[in-house]
Write a protein that binds this DNA or RNA. Structure first.
Lengths: 158, 158
DNA sequence: CATTATATGTGATATTGTAACGTCGCGGGT
DNA sequence: ACCCGCGACGTTACAATATCACATATAATG
């Protein structure tokens, strides 16, 4: 996937991904706490965007104690700020960034049927989006590019 | 603005816009009721994206009776479906479509500081977004392209 | 007019997101 | 060791956004 990118995106998984996330967060001058690790791990295991409440529920179950959505939001905000996670605006949900530390604007393909969300990078497109914004006298900070539609599996279930 | 579009976009305002909206909705086989007109008018007078609750409140005040958010959502959904209005996903809010009847994918520039939102059309960009989605085996239905940032006025207040 | 479909009203409830404030543990200064 | 300040997290309350179920009203149709 996104093999068109100029640089290679090997996607770390499991422990490697968590470890990469830790390095990135610490490099940003933030602490890597047990709670943050737990939330990152849970987020990373979801196969589709997870809401803060989804995560709170999953963590609560895993820890055997109540974890409030509140706390999850705080940590998700931190993750988004440090590029460990992304918010999918059209789904009110979050996904782990599979290559933290590299900070593309990104494109999400969100299936209306199953919720599966694919992450693409296409610097040409995102640059042109920023370009038209700038051309209109606007200072772009965060392009939100998401495509709602139907994924291959739902479109054509063999 | 968006003078690059292949066809002319004169932007109807006030009564002309309402009338254009009516024609479009009726052409879609839906009724143009007093309630729908009221909601469209109120939406069109907002100078920035309005939430369903903003609209419910404004209509309630204008009508001197309680109009529930519920009813507003129903009508907004209808409007979005008929292209009379658009939802700004990253703001949980809606804007009137200033040229109903013509249905571009569109690009919103949303100012994080003042909320002002500018609507651009750029068919080259939206086509390329749909293109990468299709290239990934995805069937795009509704691209969501929004740019969060700072508008000219907030960036550089003379 | 009677029948049916569509539109709206109403209250309840679910989901998503923030605010305010308290507690705990950790590190630095004294 | 003690105090202090700070960041992380817990806890409660609440605000904002969104949907559901069902009643009523209004419009379209025969």
């Amino acid at each position: 996937m996104h093999s068109h990118a100029a640089h290679d995106h090997r996607e770390p998984t499991g422990k490697a991904l968590t470890s990469a996330a830790q390095k990135t967060l610490e490099a940003a001058g933030e602490q890597w706490t047990a709670m943050r690790q737990r939330i990152f791990e849970v987020l990373a295991t979801f196969d589709k965007p997870a809401s803060a409440y989804d995560i709170a529920e999953a963590v609560s179950k895993a820890e055997g104690r109540r974890v409030a959505a509140n706390s999850v939001y705080r940590i998700l905000d931190l993750f988004v700020g440090a590029n460990l996670a992304r918010r999918v605006e059209s789904a009110n949900a979050y996904v782990a960034n599979s290559h933290p530390g590299c900070l593309h604007d990104c494109i999400f393909l969100v299936c209306d049927s199953c919720g599966q969300t694919t992450h693409l990078d296409d610097d040409a497109i995102t640059a042109s989006v920023r370009g038209v914004a700038t051309g209109a006298g606007f200072s772009p900070k965060r392009p939100v590019i998401e495509v709602r539609g139907t994924c291959a599996d739902c479109e054509d279930p063999d």
